[in-house]
Design a protein around this nucleic acid. Structure first.
Lengths: 222, 222
DNA sequence: TCACTCTGGCTTACAACGTAAGGAGACGTC
DNA sequence: GACGTCTCCTTACGTTGTAAGCCAGAGTGA
């Protein structure tokens, strides 16, 4: 009758929370494609079908995972100091969100494929709109700003070229004269970079500032 | 001995070209998730395994599909008039690419998930860099521009919110004050819009021009 | 002409996936 | 004690990508 005691080897009961956190852990370690119902179950010492008592189906699980990550982002950005002019405030918010996503590199792709919106993602944008409005944006301009920023608002940009294979301009065929010229010149300017010929963080900030500067100009109407 | 005659009901032989075109047709009609090896085979009157004589595996098939669509884009943009100042030239190129992608709405998502780069996509960017360089960009700035534009260079932006469900601001909970305020105001400004409260083409152009204007300012150093 | 290899199709089979269906044991409430 | 209800398990099915191997026709060299 002593079943209530916390035996050390005893299994914790499942919960939606534990299921989602386990899925995130698997994705962090082995990539999002390693997140299968059976694998998540295994990791929890349970069967795949047991998960269905806590998530409706795999789609729901992935929605929950996205929401969890977005919640992590919100935790971080809510702690930032948001006083002062809007531009550094918004800039810091977005770069902080980016830092979280760099810890979950699979998350951007997952976010992009989700059909329904995560409450936490919506919440993130609500606060962002609030900051823009406080900074002098009309709601109309804030609305445009959301679309203009797109995924960049959450801290990631669509990386069409997989980083890591662009380093060698020699592999490019000669019928691409402009790319060859560009790559040789850029590589020459920065010969010893271990980050390859382009540093993602720098590029992200370049594009972000381009947008933020443009928005500020639209706001002041100059 | 008359086996060479083109019997009407006779099946064309398979080819990589036919396989890829069929996959595109299926994706156009039923979505990218309907593109399975068996389905493509069926559509061609062949078995799934027969496709493997023309594509290495499904990944290769999808790579080929992306390349085919990018080739379609290149066909269109190569036919554009590229004389005059860089900004309208590049703008027209990107908007034309967008028109092609609107005929293959599944393509952006597929593009974003491909690991290897399509030669046609690379070619597209080569010509784009050429246009920027001709327009007075240093290769360094052109390189930054590619990253800043990201997927927008190819004519699509990451649509985080699925269009079609954002129309009703009434569904939003009250703990999202800024979004509620924004949506009610924007919806009020444009009450009769059948496109929902945001028109994608307009928003895309807004963001694109923000970037192009910013790039021009960086180029002239003002 | 014969035997050979290639090419491109088909058949069969398998492992991994998501998940439907239902059963077993622990728990609370009447 | 009977009865839900909750949680977890077992079994099984359909769908997916694809490995392995068979077979017919077309060249091709002896």
């Amino acid at each position: 009758m002593v079943t209530a005691e916390p035996v050390p080897g005893e299994r914790l009961p499942l919960s939606r929370e534990r299921v989602l956190r386990t899925a995130v852990a698997i994705a962090d370690e082995h990539g999002i494609e390693a997140v299968t119902m059976r694998r998540v179950g295994d990791e929890l010492g349970a069967e795949a079908m047991s998960l269905y008592h806590h998530v409706a189906n795999k789609n729901d699980l992935l929605d929950g995972v996205v929401d969890l990550v977005a919640g992590e982002i919100n935790e971080v950005v809510d702690a930032l100091d948001a006083t002062g002019p809007w531009q550094p405030v918004v800039r810091a918010r977005i770069l902080a969100a980016r830092q979280v996503l760099l810890r979950h590199r699979w998350a951007p792709r997952l976010l992009a494929t989700r059909a329904s919106l995560s409450p936490q993602v919506v919440r993130y944008h609500d606060r962002l709109v609030g900051q823009l409005h406080d900074g002098g944006f009309s709601f109309d301009l804030a609305h445009h700003a959301l679309h203009a920023l797109g995924s960049r608002a959450l801290g990631f940009s669509q990386e069409l070229f997989d980083p890591g294979d662009g380093g060698s301009a020699g592999a490019l065929p000669p019928e691409l004269p402009s790319l060859v010229a560009m790559l040789t010149e850029v590589a020459h300017d920065d010969p010893g970079s271990t980050l390859g010929w382009c540093d993602d963080q720098t590029e992200f900030e370049f594009g972000l500032d381009l947008l933020l500067d443009g928005l500020e100009r639209r706001r002041t109407g100059s």
